[in-house]
Every structure is written in structure tokens, then in C-alpha cells.
């Protein structure tokens, strides 16, 4: 609402001027006349200005003010962009244009790998790659399952060991079990000594003194 009122008030001077032929145009109307003159002489373009020396002077002042603004902008440009900058800029422009021209004229470089494979062949290759990937995944899963299956029995004794104390408490006395374990160990040792020898290690084996021989010597 306020904006509408403000707009209406803003338009009032122009409206009043338009209604009274004897009055002088407001500044905003002069700007409009100047813009509509489009570089030509605004005084010649408007009937009121042609007959009113005061308004003609006002519009010429406005024109000269705008020219002054343009001249100031021009001088700001002159200071910011001195001659040496233009020379350097032209050199760069020409270098880029020559480069672009040479690039356009150069032989076409084909991309690798072959972008010209037919769509059907590309789809086939993709399918093959996907099926290989799926097979690889299946094999990996199978191997992992197998390894886990092998690990399972090794884990069982550990679980047996976990329950061992309770079984031990209801088993034979401690001294008796120790004797059984020693007996087992000696048996395994005996088996190892009498087992078939590994050929490459025979020489080394011959050089190694036997526990039994050492014991006999001591006696």
C-alpha cells in the first residue's frame, strides 16, 4: 500500500506538468526527453524545450553532466589500463588465436581404447566381465567356507579344554594321570626315533649324538 502511495506521489509532478501547458517539465521528464532523443538534440525534439530557453538550458546542462560522467569513467579506465597493458594484452590474444588455429588444423587424435566397438559387442564384453566377477565371488565364498570348516575341529579341543577342569575333578587322581602322560610322551618319542629317515637329513642325523648313547657312555 505504502509503495503504491509513494509511486502515485512520485508520478504527481509529471501528471501536473502534463496538465498545465504553461508549467515547466520536472527533471525526470527532462531525462525522459533526453533518452528519447537518442543522441540527437533534445531541444529540437520537444516542443516545450524549443520554446522555453530555461528548460532548453536545463536539458543541455543535464546532457553535459552525463558527458562529464562518461569522461570521468574514461579517465578512470585510462589510468587503470595503461598503454603497455594493451600491448601485452594484444600479444596474448594473438598467441591464443594462433594456438587455437594450429589446434584446429592439427590431425585428429583418436582416443584409446577403441571407442568404435559396436554396442552389441560392448554389451557382450560387459556380460562376460560381470559373469567372471560373479564366479570369482562364488569361488571366494566357497574357499572361505572351506577354511572355516577346517578350523572348526581345531577349535573343538579348545572347547574340550575349557570343560576339562570339571572332568578332571571326577577323573583319576593327579599323580596317576601324570604317569600316563609321561608314558604317552615316551611312546611318541620312540616312534619318532624308529620312523623312516628323511634322506637329505640322514647325514646330519648321523652326526647328532643320541641321548641313549650318551647315557651309556656316562654309565
Amino acid at each position: 500500500m505504502r509503495t503504491q502511495i509513494r509511486r502515485a506521489v512520485g508520478k504527481l509532478p509529471a501528471f501536473l506538468w502534463a496538465g498545465r501547458g504553461s508549467s515547466h517539465p520536472p527533471d525526470r521528464e527532462l531525462v525522459r526527453i533526453l533518452v528519447n532523443a537518442d543522441g540527437g538534440d533534445p531541444v529540437a525534439a520537444d516542443a516545450h524545450l524549443a520554446g522555453c530557453a530555461g528548460c532548453a538550458a536545463r536539458v543541455r546542462d543535464l546532457r553535459s553532466d552525463l558527458d562529464r560522467i562518461a569522461a570521468t569513467a574514461e579517465s578512470a579506465f585510462e589510468d587503470a589500463m595503461p598503454a603497455w597493458r594493451h600491448v601485452r594484452q594484444r600479444r596474448r590474444i594473438m598467441r591464443r588465436i594462433q594456438r587455437a588455429a594450429a589446434r584446429q588444423g592439427a590431425a585428429r587424435i583418436l582416443r584409446f581404447p577403441t571407442p568404435g566397438i559396436p554396442a552389441a559387442a560392448r554389451a557382450h564384453a560387459l556380460r562376460r566381465r560381470l559373469s567372471l566377477a560373479a564366479a570369482g565371488l562364488l569361488v571366494t565364498v566357497g574357499i572361505v567356507q572351506l577354511i572355516d570348516g577346517r578350523r572348526q575341529p581345531a577349535a573343538t579341543p579348545r572347547s574340550d579344554a575349557a570343560v576339562a577342569p570339571s572332568q578332571a575333578s571326577i577323573g583319576p587322581p593327579a599323580g596317576q594321570s601324570q604317569a600316563v602322560a609321561d608314558e604317552q610322551f615316551m611312546r611318541e618319542l620312540e616312534e619318532a626315533l624308529t620312523s623312516s629317515r628323511v634322506t637329505p637329513l640322514v647325514a646330519l642325523d648321523e652326526m647328532t649324538p643320541r641321548v641313549r648313547d650318551v647315557a651309556i657312555d656316562i654309565r
Partner: peptide, 20 residues
């Protein structure tokens, strides 16, 4: 820009009415 610096003031540009 304001009248005092940029515009000559002969046209009294800040007022939007008949000025002379």
C-alpha cells in the same frame, strides 16, 4: 552521485518539479 558533486546544480536535479 548527488547533485553537489556531479550535477551542475543549474538544473536543481534533486527536485522533481518545475524548477525555474
Amino acid at each position: 552521485l548527488g547533485a553537489e558533486h556531479w550535477f551542475t546544480g543549474k538544473s536543481e536535479p534533486r527536485t522533481d518539479g518545475a524548477t525555474h
